[in-house]
């Protein structure tokens, strides 16, 4: 298909898409109105289970089965990436020396590494009462670990994230999630029923299984992001094509930038 034909098809398709979108949107209630029936139901259900953060209540209580699917998609994509990023025949692994970085970068990394880890744990633990939850906290935590790479400490990063351990915690996060759902089935007759006492609205220990499910998701997300980034960093830094061995130093410098 030539570029010209593709452009004509694109314009026709865009016109069609605009028409369909316009027809669809014209049936929607206007922006910013007061009529939100799902909001009213979700807020009432969330307050019944003493969950201050309604978004967490929707994710880990009312729609917990959907979140299970979502978590599974993430874990499956990690498996897919791991399979796709295996070293091919012409590549071999090399030991990378730590590269020099600016002192200011090292300082900022040293300051923000512990701070980011703390924020990640905080966001994850308080998911039921403040903005946050397992997904957000997990991503912050995994990002915090990778600050070591920004600070030029790739070898330290490799020691800080033992991949076999993270592969286990990733699977464990998923298994714990399923186990809590199955416990709901066993005790109350419905999968992912909030079976624990829910306590008082706004307390750290409140909202029943929401905190536990959020923690399980956080565990899986931290591990997934670490394994994903490890795969991509490996491609950029640790693997090299065999014929290029004599230009090793050049390649290493280029990859470090």
């Amino acid at each position: 298909m030539s570029r010209r034909v593709r452009m004509i098809l694109l314009v026709v398709g865009l016109l069609g898409a605009v028409t369909v979108l316009a027809v669809g949107v014209s049936g929607l209630p206007a922006f910013g109105g007061h009529h939100h029936p799902y909001r009213d139901l979700a807020v009432a259900a969330s307050l019944r289970h003493a969950t201050a953060n309604v978004v967490s209540a929707v994710n880990f209580d009312q729609r917990a089965l959907d979140t299970f699917g979502e978590e599974t998609i993430l874990v499956a994509s990690v498996a897919g990436v791991a399979a796709l990023l295996r070293p091919v025949r012409r590549e071999r692994r090399r030991r990378r020396p730590d590269v020099p970085v600016m002192d200011s970068t090292r300082l900022l990394t040293a300051v923000f590494f512990p701070v980011t880890l703390l924020i990640g744990i905080d966001v994850m633990a308080h998911g039921a009462i403040t903005p946050g939850g397992g997904f957000q906290g997990g991503v912050v935590l995994a990002t915090g670990i990778h600050l070591l790479y920004v600070g030029g400490r790739y070898r330290l990063l490799e020691r800080m994230r033992p991949l076999p351990l993270f592969e286990i915690t990733e699977a464990a996060g998923l298994v714990i999630f399923i186990a809590i759902g199955a416990a709901g089935l066993a005790v109350a007759g419905h999968v992912f029923t909030n079976i624990l006492p829910q306590g008082q609205l706004g307390r750290l220990i409140s909202s029943g299984t929401v905190v536990l499910l959020s923690g399980a998701v956080g565990m899986a997300v931290v591990s997934s992001v670490v394994i994903l980034l490890a795969g991509f960093l490996d491609q950029a830094l640790a693997l090299e094509e065999v014929p290029d061995t004599d230009q090793d130093s050049d390649g290493a410098e280029e990859a470090a930038r």
């Binding site: 909001r39 201050a52 309604v54 403040t130």
Partner: peptide, 19 residues
Amino acid sequence: PIFGSTVHRGTPVVDPVVQ
């Protein structure tokens, strides 16, 4: 849509489901 000391049962909040 996060309830607590300043946001009470009757306070208008945005839709948490779409969030």
